[in-house]
């Protein structure tokens, strides 16, 4: 039997918002999640500078390169693609970190 101790679904960040933030920040967004993930990243990462500050950088990305303003959809799309390339082993962690720092520093 499916029990239903349900709380209201409105007015909370929920489950996926948190996941999307973590994925884009940690550079673990994967190709398989594709369109959904990309959209989540774009939607959530824009106004979530706090998460960037709290996450340990996967590689020595200089703090100075952390964004001070919003991150554009275009930049996020690039990051998403880079994360995929890193995941696939096309980019090394260092190369990914350098690209990421550059994109976020723009």
């Amino acid at each position: 039997m499916l029990r239903r101790p349900m709380v209201a679904r409105a007015g909370r960040p929920g489950l996926l918002g948190t996941a999307a933030r973590t994925a884009v920040v940690a550079g673990t967004a994967t190709a398989v999640s594709g369109r959904v993930r990309a959209r989540q990243d774009a939607r959530y990462a824009e106004n979530d500078q706090a998460a960037y500050q709290q996450q340990p950088a996967p590689a020595p990305a200089p703090q100075a390169a952390q964004p001070t303003g919003g991150v554009s959809d275009e930049a996020l799309a690039k990051l998403e693609r880079l994360a995929q390339l890193q995941q696939q082993g096309v980019l090394t962690e260092e190369e990914f970190a350098a690209q990421k720092a550059q994109i976020l520093g723009q």
Binding site: M6, R9, A10, G11, R12, P13, L16, G17
Partner: peptide, 9 residues
């Protein structure tokens, strides 16, 4: 159970 963990968002 149906917890409501998923938000409207």
């Amino acid at each position: 159970e149906i917890s409501g963990l998923l938000s409207e968002q």
